[in-house]
Nucleic acid binder design. Sequence first.
DNA 1: CATGAATGAGCTTTCATTCAT
DNA 2: CATGAATGAAAGCTCATTCAT
Lengths: 213, 213, 213, 213
Amino acid sequence: MKPIKPRAAHQARAQETRQSLLHAAIEIFAAHGLHGGSVSRIAERAHSHDRMIYYYFGNKEGLFIAALEEIYRRYNEAEASISLDTDNPAEALATAVRFFVRYFRDHPEFVTVLNSENLHRGKHISKSLRASQYSKPAIGLVDSALSMGKQQGLVRETVTSRDVYLMISAMGYFYQSNQYTLSAFLGEKLQAPQSYQQWESFVVDAVWRTVSS
Amino acid sequence: MKPIKPRAAHQARAQETRQSLLHAAIEIFAAHGLHGGSVSRIAERAHSHDRMIYYYFGNKEGLFIAALEEIYRRYNEAEASISLDTDNPAEALATAVRFFVRYFRDHPEFVTVLNSENLHRGKHISKSLRASQYSKPAIGLVDSALSMGKQQGLVRETVTSRDVYLMISAMGYFYQSNQYTLSAFLGEKLQAPQSYQQWESFVVDAVWRTVSS
Amino acid sequence: MKPIKPRAAHQARAQETRQSLLHAAIEIFAAHGLHGGSVSRIAERAHSHDRMIYYYFGNKEGLFIAALEEIYRRYNEAEASISLDTDNPAEALATAVRFFVRYFRDHPEFVTVLNSENLHRGKHISKSLRASQYSKPAIGLVDSALSMGKQQGLVRETVTSRDVYLMISAMGYFYQSNQYTLSAFLGEKLQAPQSYQQWESFVVDAVWRTVSS
Amino acid sequence: MKPIKPRAAHQARAQETRQSLLHAAIEIFAAHGLHGGSVSRIAERAHSHDRMIYYYFGNKEGLFIAALEEIYRRYNEAEASISLDTDNPAEALATAVRFFVRYFRDHPEFVTVLNSENLHRGKHISKSLRASQYSKPAIGLVDSALSMGKQQGLVRETVTSRDVYLMISAMGYFYQSNQYTLSAFLGEKLQAPQSYQQWESFVVDAVWRTVSS
DNA sequence: CATGAATGAGCTTTCATTCAT
DNA sequence: CATGAATGAAAGCTCATTCAT
């Protein structure tokens, strides 16, 4: 018999190392960007060594691409767990809006890592094969809510799910992404519960007013 | 008599050096972020020397703060040049929307530098005295359009200019800021004239539907 | 009966791995020197793994020693295949000269690996037991040609085979070894067929003029 | 008056730093090759810092190129100091031979650095503008001795100075360059005074026999 | 016989910054 | 007002090698 257990244990520890490096990378990249986050700090946070990053991901860029794929994977996973009220289009859309807005609020690493990627003009995501496949589900959520509304005659036929998805994302993402400059600019702490609550309601309302007939 | 002219010439040259360093800094910070942009590259692009950055701005942080103030100054300056149609609220608001959306599109350095600042949790803008004074005018533009609309009974009384300003900014800013990841995500080049045009129209429409009574 | 065949097959595969590592090592060391050639690149070229180098050769130094022995072995093997014209000393010497000059030209790995070894002051060859036994045959070739010539009264008695061997080696080796700096220095591509041909003829002539009475 | 002294002092110290780095580089590169010699060890030996190498030479490659130029410069300088006996061609040629053979013996750094360069296929020397101009003088020495001999009818007309220069260089260079492998191969310490003396005499003799009519 | 995982030292290079004039 | 020289820390990455199965 082959020594199946030892090897399995070996691989398990290896996966653990890889995963902890990846998680640490997401945290560090989220906090300091691609340039600001150093491989040694990532390795340190993962209780591993610089060398392992090169072992598992080739180089820093490979690690960043993996981090990018992972945050997209989580985003999709979270979105897949949402179930919409199939009878009430307005409520379904509101649910979708709340999901997106809250996701951006509760996952600042998603926001900052994407900003880093956009600073680099999407150079890494274009190298990723997996990342592209993550797009459809997200739009799908909005699409199903809109389709429902169109069937019931509550949503205008000319509205496209692409525009509405962008609208929702924009309003949720920007509020989180630019919270610091906006807070200074508006003289108001945007992350205060009251401020946030007002904004969420406003977005739900704005989206429905925009799409409804 | 004092040699007043020579000193003036001296100061003029000094201002010139300072300005070219500042402009170069904005370009470099916009392209590579705060960490990615090195002082030597900035000095090189300005056809000056590293040392001059310390001479005029103290350190890299001081230069970044100055850059931040400068892009806000330009933003305000541009906004001040807009005049709204005082009779037609819908058109006035549309004009404001187009101004913002286009400003973000045409000034990517504004977007990327602000993203950098937000990555650093607004650490620099809070140290700037000038930056805070730049907030009011921008909102003022939206505010005047909304006030006009409210007077004419075309805009709902409960709508706040803060929310509408955020809505417009979000939709214009996000489209530019996240263009690379969105393009990969949606499988569509967002900066293509057609795509952009559709988006601009959609934003104008969405804003009006949101605020109108 | 013992499973003799399987073991033989096993050993054959092992020898194969060892050999491919050794050949890869010679290529890499020849191209980049001892320091420039890394064990991982050698293993990669041999379609094997770093670990195998340690398995078969102990460490990088052991591999280099083995490579050194191997190129000497080949050198000797090639020399053993030469048969000289026993009647004509001049022609015999010319044949020997051509063999050496061409060997260095056609086996640049011999030249560069030896240079590497000399850079390290012969540290490895002194550890090799086999290498020392490879010396006699090479000189023997020159020696037999000279002896023949002396018997026939065509070669001066005071000439030693050691000096002539060095002379031939020097002229053949240096031309190959220093081809790049010489080409730059002389403004002439030494490896061009014409240049090379002229040189070979010159060496044949020079050697005979030097030894003949 | 301008502060000419301070600046001069400044520049003097700077030149000193640059020179000590260059000299250290030649020693280290000579001892360990391009790859084997690390910038930190070079800086250390020069009582300076790594950073200064990049300040003065751009990168390691630039330093190596400068080192290459320097050893060629010295080689030329030494050659320029030789004066040949204008009446006696045989003695003039012997003087030239002795100069070259002894130069290679006494300047092993010239030999090993050139070997390093040839290992890298002349990639650096081709980037150097100065190096190419150093070629003519060296050949000139041989050329003048041969011309003299031809005028006096002592040297064959068909002999070219290129071939003779190569012959002399080869025999002097190879003896030094390959001393360690040759010593192991021949079972004789080549750098022992007796061995060396015999070789020098042999080369002087061989060259004259080769060129004389 | 073979291999995936891990290690620590070292590499070349770039960084923001200060010194001395 | 300006500059060349110098600095130390840290960056990303590769190295030869060993461990545990």
